[in-house]
C-alpha cells in the first residue's frame, strides 16, 4: 500500500495513496500504525482523500488503529472521506465511533 506520513508536532498524518483499501493492502496500514505506536506516536490523522472504496478489511485496519491509539491515551481521527467511503461508515455505523473531518487541517486542529 502506498502511504505517506507527515509529522505535525505530536500528531502524525498518514495519507493513504490508494484508490482501494481491501484485504490485499489494508494490512500495510495496520503495520504502519503499529510502528508509530511503538515509537510513542499515538495521535494519528488518516487522510482518505484518495480512497474511493473501502471494504470490511479496510475498516478493520482503521478500527484496530483506533483501539490501539485509545489504549495508549491517544486518538485516531479520519478526514476527507469520499461519498462511497462515507456510506460504508454509515452502513456499519462506524461513523459513530470515529471522529470524521472534512479537511486534514480541521482534523489536526481538533487535537
Amino acid at each position: 500500500m502506498q502511504l505517506t506520513t507527515e509529522e505535525h508536532g505530536e500528531i502524525v498524518k498518514i495519507v493513504v495513496q490508494e484508490e482501494r483499501m481491501d484485504a490485499h493492502n489494508s494490512g500495510s496500514l495496520k503495520e504502519e500504525m503499529l510502528k508509530l505506536f511503538d515509537e510513542g506516536k499515538c495521535n494519528l490523522v488518516i487522510d482518505l482523500s484518495s480512497v474511493r472504496f473501502v471494504d470490511s478489511s479496510g475498516l478493520g485496519a482503521l478500527v484496530s488503529g483506533f483501539k490501539n491509539a485509545s489504549t495508549k491515551d491517544g486518538n485516531l481521527k479520519l478526514c476527507c472521506l469520499q461519498p462511497q467511503v462515507r456510506s460504508m461508515f454509515e452502513l456499519t455505523r462506524l461513523h459513530r465511533v470515529f471522529e470524521i473531518f472534512t479537511s486534514a487541517d480541521e482534523a489536526l486542529e481538533s487535537f
Binding site: 471494504d55 470490511s56 478489511s57 475498516l59 478493520g60 485496519a61 478500527v63 484496530s64 483506533f66 483501539k67 452502513l91 456499519t92 455505523r93 462506524l94 459513530r96 465511533v97
Partner: peptide
Amino acid sequence: KETDEEGRGIQL
C-alpha cells in the same frame, strides 16, 4: 460489535 476488527463482511 462496533469496535470488532472482523466479522462485518458476511453481514454486509
